[in-house]
């Protein structure tokens, strides 16, 4: 089994999948990411799949799970770099990635996170003034 590296850049965690994923790699990544989001307080997760040549339902479900889990930690997940052949296959397979955000490439993915980050800290700032939260 190979551990997929998770890089931290500011408040974003970056994962670039460069191997042919075994199911247990997928599960390990899911767990590692939740832990890392929790430990670092990251606000965003970017998963780069530009080197991934197939996404089946198991891998697709991982994206959905990571997205839902990260939301519980107030972080947003963006999947970037999906190859056209992979996208066509996913649609025909019937796999909707649910509420997983996607972007064409890393740059656009980071831009989405910046946008969301800005809006959110405004909202948070106001909420904090009204009601202090236990931390």
């Amino acid at each position: 089994m190979e551990r997929i590296p998770i890089l931290k850049i500011g408040d974003v965690l970056l994962v670039s999948i460069q191997i042919d994923l075994q199911d247990r790699d997928v599960l390990a990544l899911q767990e590692d990411l939740s832990e890392q989001i929790c430990d670092t307080g990251a606000r965003g997760v970017v998963i780069d799949i530009s080197a991934v040549d197939i996404v089946d339902s198991f891998i697709g479900r991982m994206f959905a799970t990571i997205a839902s889990t990260s939301r519980l930690f107030d972080a947003t997940t963006v999947v970037v770099g999906m190859r056209p052949a992979v996208a066509i296959t996913l649609v025909e397979l019937g796999l909707t990635l649910g509420n997983v955000r996607t972007a064409l490439n890393l740059e656009k993915g980071l831009a989405i996170l910046r946008q969301i980050g800005g809006t959110r800290s405004d909202v948070l700032g106001r909420a904090d003034d009204d009601q202090p939260v236990d931390r």
Binding site: I54, D56, R83, P84, A85, I88, T89, E92, L93
Partner: peptide, 14 residues
């Protein structure tokens, strides 16, 4: 084709 390769590999994986 690349798309057909991807489809059959994905089906095989499932």
């Amino acid at each position: 084709s690349l798309v057909d390769q991807t489809k059959v590999v994905t089906a095989a994986s499932e």
